[in-house]
Design a protein around this nucleic acid. Structure first.
Length: 490
RNA sequence: GGCCCCAUCGUCUAGCCCGGCCUAGGACACCAGGUUUUCAUCCUGGCGACAGGGGUUCAAAUCCCCUUGGGGUCACCA
């Protein structure tokens, strides 16, 4: 067990980077970083039907964005290149030929039709579904003859009776009765090897020492261990991570929420918040500290400390954590981070924002405690960019405004009172004090003015100081929105 | 259904491996109160769990067994 520490993350480019995959990558990466190992990225593109270059690019980009850098991989190369599984097919075929020659693998001429029928029959008889071994004992010469004659065949692994054991650093030592492991297909009839086969070939060639992956792979592991034994290789140390679950307690899927890392980036979760939250799925620093950086994670992470039970992906806690990170950002930094989201929303242009950067900084600084993602700033600040007649009045704001029977009269009087006082621009402090006095003089309660006023100006039920908002909007806009509100709040 | 995995507050978890310090700690959410022009932030307090049953032991959340519940997997996908 003194071989060099080498870990890998091996995504298949058949879709976006799954948030659970990101956690798997993070744990492998952290382990490698903590113990001075190498972190290898390998692309499992052996499913030509579903693999695409775009997905591959997006996955690499996503990992890089998270800061999970790899020492060897498809773009950076390395001593075990190539790092695309498809390009290693020559090696896979060598391994397969070797196993066939040694009788560890055998040709199976069963057609898909027969296999389907077999599965149906087994289900009807309520037997366990597994290959029945019809071609297992075909004479080698006959099998070779039929193959030469052009009959199509797959290569199956001949599982011998016994027990297969392996070390799992998360679950403890595992053992499976080989009776439960069927003679599985190693190489398809089109000559392409299957996942369980190539993953071992590549892990052997790349000298991978530790394999940490999702629990869904647990039952594949005996097949793979058997393969290591057939190759005369020591299997890696395994660690099967608990699954990340949806609110339905099933494996996280699109049914119950966003599953792709990209979805969370698009919503404007800060990078560090995502990383932090991922750390908390199945692992805890000390049971007390919730907020910590990836540096600290690397310093303390051990695969043995990972929990066994699956965890429900709690978006509420994620949002809270995200908000914590946002509140720790300086206005300047936060403004930069929010900018693209306002632009993406079509509220303004980057140039437009930069042209009044100090104004934007003030808005961001004031809204900071109300947003949990960068994207939420776009929701909260939309009123600042909306045409005066099209400010969205939200239901709760409208309800609050309409509570006051005298709202129109109050607003009309206030508008006329306000007009001369903002003629030279809005002085927040002065208007604020004068307005409070005005409300008191009229014997009103504060909300009687503030609620309709806030609705008129922002369309929102809550927000930063109203008089700051007035200054951001500017006197002409404020007056116009009040005039319009006289009709819209009727 | 077979096989496999899992089981502490609604949720994420600490404690479990090496039984006593646990009248089970923290966080999110929720509820109440305080601050505030509102919302939010912030502060204070509250609600809230060892799935059930048997053992072992002076002592069990911690060890063992069973039951129950949940999940994963049963492809010529990965």
């Amino acid at each position: 067990m003194t071989r060099p520490l080498r870990l890998r993350f091996a995504p298949s480019p058949t879709g976006k980077l799954h948030i659970g995959g990101a956690r798997t990558a993070l744990f492998n990466w952290a382990y490698a970083r903590r113990y001075g190992g190498r972190f290898v990225l390998r692309i499992e593109d052996t499913d030509p039907e579903r693999s695409t270059k775009e997905h591959e690019r997006a996955i690499l980009e996503g990992l890089a964005w998270l800061g999970l850098d790899w020492d060897e991989g498809p773009d950076v190369g390395g001593p075990h290149a190539p790092y695309h599984q498809m390009q290693r097919i020559g090696r896979h075929k060598e391994y397969a030929a070797d196993l066939l020659a040694r009788g560890i693998a055998y040709r199976c001429f069963c057609t898909r039709e027969r296999l389907e029928e077999l599965a149906r029959a087994q289900e009807a008889a309520r037997e366990k579904s597994a290959y029945d071994g019809r071609c297992r004992d075909l004479a080698a010469e006959e099998a070779a003859r039929r193959a030469t004659a052009g009959e199509s065949f797959t290569l199956r692994f001949r599982v011998q009776p016994g027990t297969t054991r392996f070390a799992d650093r998360v679950r403890g030592d595992m053992s499976f009765d080989n009776k439960e492991v069927e003679d599985w297909v190693m190489v398809r009839s089109d000559g392409n090897p299957t996942y369980n086969f190539v993953v071992v070939c590549d892990d052997v060639d790349m000298q991978i020492s530790h394999v940490f992956r999702g629990e869904e792979h647990l039952v594949n592991t005996p097949k793979q261990v058997l393969l290591y034994q057939a190759f005369g290789q020591e299997p890696p140390v395994f660690g099967h991570l608990p699954l990340m679950l949806g609110t339905d307690k099933k494996k996280l899927s699109k049914r119950t929420g966003d599953t792709a890392l990209q979805d969370y980036r698009d919503r404007g979760f800060p990078r560090r918040a995502i990383l932090n939250f991922l750390c908390l799925q199945g692992w805890a620093l000390d049971g007390q500290t919730e907020i910590f950086g990836v540096e600290e994670f690397v310093q303390h992470f051990d695969i043995a400390d990972v929990g066994k039970a699956g965890s429900i992906f709690d978006i509420e806690k994620f949002l809270w954590l995200s908000g914590e990170y946002i509140r720790r950002e300086a206005p300047e930094e936060l403004a930069e981070n929010c900018l693209p989201f306002l632009v993406a929303r079509g509220l303004t242009s980057e140039a437009g924002l930069r042209a009044r950067w100090s104004w934007f900084l003030e808005v961001v600084g004031a809204e900071r405690e109300r947003i949990r993602t960068y994207g939420e700033l776009a929701d909260r600040a939309a009123y600042l960019f909306a045409p005066d007649a099209a400010v969205a009045y939200h239901d709760d704001a409208l309800a609050a405004a309409r509570k006051h029977a005298q709202r129109l009269e109050t607003l009309r009087d206030y508008l006329e009172w306000l007009r001369p006082r903002v003629a030279g621009g809005v002085d927040s402090a002065a208007v604020r004090d004068a307005t409070k006095a005005w409300v008191a003089d009229r014997g009103l309660k504060m909300p009687a003015l503030f609620q309709p006023l806030r609705c008129a100006l922002t369309g929102l039920a809550g927000g930063p100081d109203l008089f700051d908002a007035m200054r951001w909007l500017g006197a002409p806009v404020v007056l116009r929105r009040l005039e319009i509100a006289l009709e819209r709040l009727a």
